[in-house]
Design a binder for these strands. Structure first.
Lengths: 248, 248
DNA sequence: GTAATAGTGTCTCTAAGACAATATGAA
DNA sequence: TTCATATTGTCTTAGAGACACTATTAC
């Protein structure tokens, strides 16, 4: 029996629990995150991830979904949402002991967050502009973004790395695309998230040759210019075999 | 500004935060977990993961290390420790609202936990005996283990799956081995964790051909019987390239 | 000798990557 | 026409998996 287990259940050490959201999308061929500008102390004016306290009657996942709906102003979004990691160093919030459970959300290019409510200060920011070290190949026009509050730079970096890894082994790249998409659009997702360029010919052969990844939708589109491209929908596999490998 | 953010910092919703440990090792060529038998309500008599409350002055990782040292009776163990996931459904503990951060620890075959203190009720159990569905290939002699408390069966299953995945892309299999080990011993780790049998010849070629995975230690041993085997130590890479692939 | 494990070699096949060539729309 | 993107094809090479064979100990 540990010392800590001798606590009376009514006198356990009390923590605040929050959820923070790493919401990623691809806009204009750039990996972008939904970020807010903090309006109050601590870290007033700093860049931060959307999030908030978990309520007593909701699970962690429910809290993440609720915050996501509040921040984007839309409900029932077709977004992928998964738990990322939990951050609980002693001094991460100067006000009190806070443990934050981070969630990763992947979304197709959404309309700009609606004004009003929480979303007033939320906006899409290219990750390369706030965390240039994650995109060593790009020329980083560092724009005037305030530094991050709390440990949110680290959380965002962890979310990007998780997304990069998941694109290899799962069909999650399609979560960044509308319901019907072309092979070229899917390739631009990989290029934006990984920060690389891929050979369009090998990529095409690979995607269409991986069983269950994409299914022909029947039509074509010219929304990307050039020769009309076939439209596809997501297939039914949850694990890619063979995987899509990141260039070394 | 959400309703929840209007809380006065001194009146935030209070949660209890615990850490639970999935401690895995390989004993007698079987993947085994360190489990305890609960002595008190709720779930008295049930099987559970070791763990306990996070203290106000320690980080999550520090709490995990402390609990690990308390449960195994040894400090400064050469174990790999990483955060697994966080579990926070509303009713997972009937006493109060508890959020549990699970950690995964991988250890070489340790001495049996020392009697006295916390470790009194801790013992190694083959995972195939308590979660036979994770080892469909084995004939499962279901021994008389009490069912799991809380959601600990799920946490253990998640930990095993994490370990299985990490063996593919990282050199973590060596974390189950003593400082010097043979290729055959490393292969038996893969076989025990994945629940498969591997071709010793292809495995040998693969491990010794992956740059930085293992480094010759100079000596040989016959502790496994048969022809003397070369001893190796862990190499310096953190990511295997090419990866060790699980058989389909 | 036999049994057991270690280690090497060889073959086949899948798939990754480089890159030529063709197809089909828009301006 | 030119330009941009899509799609097919071909070649080379790395590596996974099957499996024959040899090596070195204990008994």
């Amino acid at each position: 029996m540990t010392e800590s287990e001798l606590y009376d259940p009514a006198r356990f050490p009390a923590f605040a629990v929050t959820v923070d959201l790493v919401v990623l999308t691809v806009r204009d061929s750039r990996l972008s995150a939904l970020l807010i500008r903090r309006g109050e102390e601590p870290y007033a004016g700093r860049t931060a991830l959307p999030g908030g306290f978990v309520r007593p009657a909701e699970s962690l996942g429910q809290a993440a979904r609720r915050e996501l709906a509040e921040e984007t102003g839309l409900a029932d979004l077709p977004v992928h949402l998964e738990q990322l990691a939990t951050y609980g160093t002693v001094d991460r919030d100067p006000r009190m002991r806070v443990v934050s459970v981070a969630y990763l959300a992947l979304a197709p290019d959404l309309p700009a967050p609606t004004a009003g409510g929480d979303a007033a200060d939320a906006h899409w920011v290219a990750v390369a502009d706030v965390l240039p070290e994650l995109f060593p190949a790009a020329q980083n026009r560092a724009e005037g973004h305030p530094p991050f509050a709390f440990d949110h730079a680290r959380i965002l970096a962890d979310g990007v790395e998780r997304a990069r890894a998941k694109l290899e082994y799962t069909p999650l790249a399609a979560a960044f695309c509308p319901p019907e998409f072309t092979v070229g659009e899917l390739r631009r997702v990989y290029e934006a998230v990984w920060g690389v360029t891929l050979d369009p010919r090998n990529f095409h052969r690979k995607v269409t040759g991986t069983p269950g990844y994409v299914r022909p939708a029947g039509g074509t589109t010219t929304r990307q210019g050039g020769r009309p491209a076939q439209l596809f929908t997501r297939g039914d596999v949850t694990l890619l075999n063979p995987p899509m490998l990141r260039p070394a």
